[in-house]
């Protein structure tokens, strides 16, 4: 496969390239690049500190939820329905956890691949599930928190519909390709 290699090379080169090209463009436009950089960088600390309460709130709720074992119960409750569409029961908890916790899902997915083998259907499906969406609740909490948005309107609904589509599409494409 040459595409992953190409994309990998691009993602390795992109950061150094941006760090070089942007300041050079600044110099050419007679920007005092060092002062501009420091001015912008000053905001970094404030933004990071501003998101702390939102991160604490969201990660505490998610951490408690995971530790209670509710995920296993939920997976068991909806498993009969998901089996009808060909979703292996083993991969279901990983799909349910994906919008809540990236590192938690990675742990589950790694575990599934250890048990079933990375080249089993469950292993391939779990790998695809992990990459098919982002950690919706983390992104919403941090991004809205950083600018003080309290009324999030349809953001949760749109994010979760995307997650659901990601899981369904992962299952579909794994069935078609493997």
């Amino acid at each position: 496969m040459t595409f992953p290699a190409l994309a990998n090379a691009l993602s390795t080169a992109l950061v150094p390239l941006l760090l070089l090209v942007i300041p050079i463009a600044g110099i050419l436009r007679r920007v005092r690049v060092y002062d501009a950089f420091v001015g912008g960088a000053k905001e970094g600390f404030n933004v990071a500190v501003r998101i702390i309460p939102y991160l604490v709130a969201m990660l505490v709720a998610i951490g408690m939820f995971r530790a209670s074992g509710a995920m296993t119960l939920l997976a068991r409750a909806i498993e009969p329905a998901t089996r009808l569409v060909g979703m292996p029961a083993e991969a279901l908890p990983a799909a349910l956890l994906r919008p809540l916790s990236g590192s938690g899902t990675l742990a589950l997915v790694s575990d599934l691949m250890k048990t079933h083998g990375p080249d089993s259907f469950v292993g391939r499906l779990a790998s695809t599930l992990y990459g098919s969406t982002e950690t919706t609740f983390y992104v919403l909490a941090v991004y809205f928190g950083a600018v003080g948005i309290r009324r999030t309107r349809h953001a949760v609904a749109a994010g979760l519909l995307g997650d659901l589509a990601g899981v369904a599409a992962a299952l579909l494409f794994c069935r078609l390709l493997f």
Partner: peptide, 11 residues
């Protein structure tokens, strides 16, 4: 954050 916000300011 500081690194990227600094670069963004130059941009």
């Amino acid at each position: 954050m500081a690194l990227w916000l600094g670069v963004m300011r130059i941009a």
